[in-house]
Every structure is written in C-alpha cells, then in structure tokens.
Design a protein around this nucleic acid. Structure first.
Lengths: 235, 235
DNA sequence: GTCTATATCCTGATAGAC
DNA sequence: GTCTATCAGGATATAGAC
C-alpha cells in the first residue's frame, strides 16, 4: 500500500463492484466451486446462515432456520459444519479476508495517498452497503465467536487497521494530509464505513455507488490540511 | 438548538460528566427513586439486564441471568416487567431519551454552531464511551424490539438526527461550515460517535474525556470550509 | 450425504403458597 | 412482592437407517 501506482493494472473499482453475497464470500481467484474449496451444499448453508444471522442475529437464529433455508433437514447441516458457531466463524473469517483484500488492493492501485484514501474508505463503505448482510455479521456478531475464533479474526481486523493508518501516514509524509492523531483518525474513518452496515438496507434511498462517492469525499475532508497549514505547505 | 447563548447558564459539560449507568438511566431532574417513578427493585433489574444485554446480547441473555444478577428468583422479575422484551424496551427508551436530552441541552448551551457541533458530537461520543453498556443496547439491540416498540424508539432516533442536522444547517447559514450534503454528513458524524459503543471498553487506553475532545475536533474538521471557500468568506 | 427420530438440556413465562 | 415448583415448548447436537 506504499507503492502507489505500482499495481495500477488492477483497477480499484473492479473488486468493489461485485454485488452478490456469494461474490463477497469468494476469494478473488477462486474457481473450483463457487467459493474456493468447499462443496456447493456448504455454500448454500453459508448463504442461508448469512441471511439469517444478518436478519435476526446469531443467537436468535436456530439451526432449523438455517437448515430449512438451505433445503436440508436439521441434521444435514452438521455434515458440513460441526456447530453453529463454526458456521459463524467461517462467515466471519471469509468476510474479514475479503474486506481486507479490497482495502489492500485499492490502496496499492492508487497513485497518491489522497486517491488511496478515497478508494479505501469509499470502497469499504460501499462494501458495507452492497454486502450489508455479511458486513453486519463481520462487525456486529464478532463477540459471539468462541475465544480462539475471536483471536483468529482479531488478527485480520488489525491488518485492516494498518492499511488505513498506513495511508494516513503516507499522506502526512507527502503533505497531502494534516492529521494530528493517526490512530484516532483511522478509527473514526473505519467507524463511518462500518456503521453503514448498521443503517443500510436495500430500501434506503442512497445507492452503494453514491455512498462510495460521499464517504470517499468525507474521508478526505477529515484529513485535508487547514488554511494555515495549507499555506505553509504551498509556500 | 438555534438560540445560541440563550441557555448558556447551563454548562454543557455537566450532563456529560455523569459516570454511572444509573445516571444514564435517570431523567435529568428525577428525585423520587433513583430512576424516576419506578421502584428500587425495578432499577436493580434494569441495571442487571443492561449489564447482561451489553455483555452477551439480548437473545444470549436468559431471564435467569437477569434475575440472579438482581438477587431475585426467576419469577421475581415478572412482577416488575411483563416480559424480557419489555425490559429491553424500557432500557432502550430511557437510553434514547437521555442521549437526546444531552444533545439538545449541549446544542442550546453553545454560543455558535462551531461550539454546538463540538459539544454535541464530542458529548455524544463521550456518552457512548462512559455508558458503553447502555450505548450498545440503544444502538445494537434495536432490531430485537417488537414492531410497536421499535416504532416508539424510531421517533426518538429521528429527534437525535434532527439536532445534528439543525446544527449543521445553522453553521452553513453563518458561513462557519461548508457542507454539501447535510443529511449524509449528519449521518456520518453520528456514525463516528455511535461506533464508539462498539469498540470502547474500560480497558482501552483512551479516556472518555479524551474521546470527547478528539471527536469534537474531528467533527469540526469534517465541516470546516476548504481554503478557497474560507478565503471568500473572509474577504 | 441425507434422512427420521430422538437425547438432553435450556428457554420464557406462569401457578399458587406465603 | 417474593418465593418454590413447574409447564410447555424449543434449543443444539447426535444416533443410526438408507
């Protein structure tokens, strides 16, 4: 994410425009089944669970719910996932990985910290709208993971933090940004994007594309230098 | 919230510095019992439920959990609240009312839109840290309310939105702010503050007071005019 | 790999004594 | 207003036939 322009053959908008939950679960180059190395039935179960978890929450969702949405008997789920919590973990892990990949790719493809910031915060916000179901699971069902699974996901969350903080530091170095507290600003930027998953529904008037543009712009406003500082940089 | 300076005898920091969950549940002038018109036992139950709901979520909390934390038998709860969901509603309603009151008072006590914005976003953020338990219930357990209770709370949420949007419009009118999309900016500002309840715990290094200062400052950065616009206002 | 059937335990809420 | 005891149903997960 520091080598701006080096990977610019990867257009930053392509990975951000996928619109199905299935796409959000799939790794970038997956091919064998729809989602990497798992069976189609397992994918059907994950999609059913994602739907239910996002709609009602982890603990309000029953294994019978998931099974019947996936067209299976209650017992059929356990051939593919050893427990309901493991199913949550799989969704959470894949969702975090996908979100992180989007950020890393968008940052790498940008030609400047300003472009990178717009791309990552705009793209992250759009992702939380387009995939608001998976986004809710990733962001709001986290605490229902068992400790070992929580720890695994925490590592991915730190990577996401680091992408944002890295772009901010780069922009401070080039003078494009004036940020007094990089970790706090990174956190606030992520908060704006994460919260999209809370309020967004397909009924809402704003489109994911509009959200991308608006939040990319708001992100830049939050870090741009003020009048005095801008003047000193320009002189 | 438009009569800046009219209520400046009410210091804006007083309502923001209360630090117990009990204080967050109490209406500003309540006196009879600790929390308005309800019995001490009902308050004990609400505190126990708030603790449990914030820690584990509504559906993962059992009525036996709540009862034992409140020092009651499982049946004892039902004398004071007719169902677990009604208990959630009471917490949610009181929490929303308290948060709204803080915003309204902080906005009214400020001498300018700039001060008002710092006070409401800083104060709202601080509230979500100091009362992160009630904050989580208010912000993240909302969907587990029954439809009629959700509707009641939705009205309060709209009032909160309106306070923020009103301050933004006032600042645009005076030229202190340059905001292209008031509803979107109000939403993003609220997102920053709301998300504090998700990540804050007492273990975290930032204090609620530091969060208030940081987020008040970030809020202003998001709306301040750019160089060109600032110059035209000053000339 | 999927089913039917079921074990085992837990859930929200209530009945009725004190 | 609080208790003990309990209802009636639902929860996750497993056993064993096909």
């Amino acid at each position: 994410m520091r080598a701006y322009g080096m990977l610019s053959t990867v257009p930053s908008t392509t990975p951000l425009s996928e619109s199905t939950l299935l796409a959000a679960l799939a790794p970038a180059g997956g091919r064998q089944s729809a989602v990497g190395d798992v069976s189609d039935t397992a994918v059907r179960i994950m999609l059913a669970a994602a739907d239910a978890f996002a709609q009602r929450g982890f603990h309000a969702t029953t294994t019978r719910d998931i099974a019947s949405r996936a067209g299976l008997s209650p017992a059929g789920v356990y051939v593919h996932f050893t427990s309901k919590e493991v199913l949550l973990f799989e969704l959470s892990r894949r969702g975090h990985e996908r979100a992180r990949d989007l950020l890393v790719e968008a940052a790498a493809a940008a030609d400047s910290p300003t472009e990178a910031l717009r791309a990552i915060i705009g793209g992250f916000s759009r992702w939380h709208a387009e995939h608001y179901e998976l986004g809710r699971i990733v962001q709001f069902e986290f605490r229902h993971l068992r400790p070992e699974h929580r720890d695994a996901v925490l590592g991915l969350r730190k990577e996401i933090d680091q992408v944002v903080a890295g772009v901010l530091r780069d922009g401070v170095d080039t003078g494009e940004f004036a940020v007094t507290d990089v970790p706090a600003t990174a956190l606030a930027l992520l908060s704006m994007a994460i919260d999209v998953a809370r309020w967004y529904t397909p009924d809402v008037r704003r489109t994911p594309a509009a959200i991308e543009a608006t939040y990319g712009e708001l992100a830049f406003r939050l870090v741009r230098p003020g009048e005095a500082l801008a003047a000193s940089v320009l002189s």
